Simulated assay, not measured.
Amino acid sequence: MEIKLTLNGERIVQDIEPDLLLIDFVRKNGCYSVKRGCDTSNCGLCTVLLNDKPVLSCSVLAMRANGAKVVTLEGLQEEAKPLATFIASQGAEQCGFCNPGFMMNTLALLKENPHPSDDDIKEFLAGNLCRCSGYEGQLRGIKNYLNYLEEKGNE
């Protein structure tokens, strides 16, 4: 079956198998930030934006994205660089495996709610599994990033 979608700004038309998962489709198309971690939709490592909303690509058939816009971390490099720096400054990137999911969900949260409370951040990131850091470093990094954006906006 044929799928047509926009992946990180590039129009793609491909023949795919009907049971192909979105995670496998985006990885086949060079988006290696999207990772397989649990295969049970519990870890957040496979998060992509589907029409600007975060979804777990391991639990979505690729065909569900037909006609849609899919964005991975590769498509958000400029936007994600400062956030990655703030997360790293807090020691929250220890192994780095979970960072793409955290960054995708944080960027999606900020599009939806540019001034989130700590509880808003925790709720939005609840589905992201980190086995190394205990989440406090990520939370501090995100809050520092929000302060940076606020200061930048006041310039």
Rank of each mutant, 00 (worst) to 15 (best):
G30E: 11
G137W: 05
Y145R: 14
V55C: 04
G101P: 06
C58D: 09
R11S: 11
P82M: 05
D39C: 09
I121P: 08
E93C: 13
R140H: 14
R64Y: 10
G96N: 03
R27W: 05
A65W: 09
C46S: 07
F124G: 01
C43G: 02
Y148F: 15
L73T: 06
I142S: 11
T47W: 02
E74L: 03
I3Q: 02
A126M: 07
N8M: 08
P82D: 11
P82L: 03
P18Q: 05
T47Y: 03
S89A: 09
C58G: 10
N154A: 15
V48A: 01
S133G: 15
A65S: 10
Q14S: 13
C58A: 11
F97R: 07
R11W: 14
A88C: 09
S117Q: 12
G96Y: 08
T72F: 09
K111F: 08
N147C: 11
G37H: 00
T85N: 14
I16E: 00
L107P: 00
T40L: 10
S89M: 09
V60Q: 11
A88R: 15
I3G: 02
D39V: 03
C132D: 07
D120M: 10
Q90D: 12
V60C: 14
N113M: 15
N113I: 15
C31V: 01
S33Y: 02
L45C: 12
N66A: 08
K152S: 11
E10V: 15
P114D: 12
S41Q: 05
K111G: 03
G75S: 07
R27N: 15
L76R: 06
P18M: 07
G37P: 04
E93V: 15
K35S: 12
L56F: 14
A80Y: 02
L21G: 03
L56M: 13
E93W: 06
V70S: 01
R140L: 15
R36L: 14
P18T: 01
K4A: 11
L139R: 13
T72Q: 04
I87W: 05
P54H: 07
N42R: 00
V26R: 06
D39E: 12
E155L: 15
C58S: 12
C132H: 05
L22W: 01
K143S: 12
N8S: 09
F124T: 07
I12S: 02
F97E: 10
Q77W: 08
L45P: 00
L146D: 02
S59H: 05
F102A: 03
K122V: 08
Q90T: 10
G9D: 11
L5F: 00
E74T: 03
F97M: 09
E2I: 00
G44E: 07
P18S: 05
V26D: 00
N128P: 02
